[in-house]
């Protein structure tokens, strides 16, 4: 029964979801909405499990004095601080540095968002530029004819998509870069998209038919 009941729910929901797309009537829309709400509830419960898992991992680290356990203290402290900032009553004032409990400019919550989360996230994303540079340096080698083609295409697109390209070499370079993006690139992508779409369809069918059961845990 541990596997049959989920399977029945899965089949029912799968078939319903496929059909409801074609039915404009409000009844399936209502069921659809409620199913989605269920997903939200399940997600919320799973989030609690996730948080328990995260915190117990770090408490265990501290308990066992594993290397780097000091960071676990920081994680736990910031975890509770960010959560608490969202629950602060509007009247609370933590001073001009930390901010108020209100959800307007200058609140503790928005200060954490604007002055901690924003710069940290922007920095992490900016790291991508450095990773791309080092990956490009390593990977773009003219080892074979195909690799040379890839290398040349990459250089044309890189130079053609920034203003210095057409400024120095003329408009043809940006036109060529745009052509590469719009024609060969798009054609290859479409082919992959079709393959992916069919793959998704076939995987979904296998799940609805009960052929694919990995998601039930442990395979067949």
């Amino acid at each position: 029964m541990r596997k049959e009941i989920p399977l029945v729910i899965m089949v029912a929901c799968g078939v319903f979801m496929a059909i409801q797309f074609f039915v404009p009537h409000e009844l399936p829309a209502l069921i659809y909405q409620n199913l989605n709400k269920t997903v939200q509830v399940v997600g919320a419960v799973a989030l609690v499990l996730g948080i328990v898992s995260l915190l117990s991992l770090h408490f265990a680290k501290i308990n066992r004095r594993q290397p780097g356990y000091g960071y676990s203290y920081i994680l736990i402290a910031f975890f509770f601080m960010m959560a608490a900032s969202g629950f602060l009553p509007a009247k609370v004032n933590l001073g001009s540095f930390l901010g108020t409990g209100d959800r307007v400019e200058g609140s503790f919550y928005l200060n954490l968002y604007n002055y901690v989360l924003t710069p940290v996230q922007a920095t992490m994303f900016a790291l991508l530029a450095f990773f791309i540079a080092s990956a490009a340096f390593r990977a773009f080698r003219a080892r074979s004819v195909i690799a040379t083609l890839l290398l040349l295409t990459a250089i044309i697109v890189m130079i053609g998509r920034v203003p210095i390209g057409p400024f120095v070499l003329g408009d043809w370079i940006s036109d060529l870069a745009d052509w590469i993006m719009a024609v060969p690139n798009a054609a290859a992508k479409r082919a992959v998209i079709v393959g992916v779409g069919l793959g998704i369809l076939s995987l979904s069918l296998k799940m609805v038919l009960g052929i694919e059961r990995a998601w039930l845990g442990g395979g067949r």
Binding site: A129, A133, A136, F137, A154, M158, I159, R161, I164
Partner: peptide, 14 residues
């Protein structure tokens, strides 16, 4: 523009 140029020069050097 300059970042792209730097990467292109690196690739050429490589």
């Amino acid at each position: 523009s300059f970042a792209h140029l730097a990467i292109i020069i690196l690739v050429i050097l490589g």
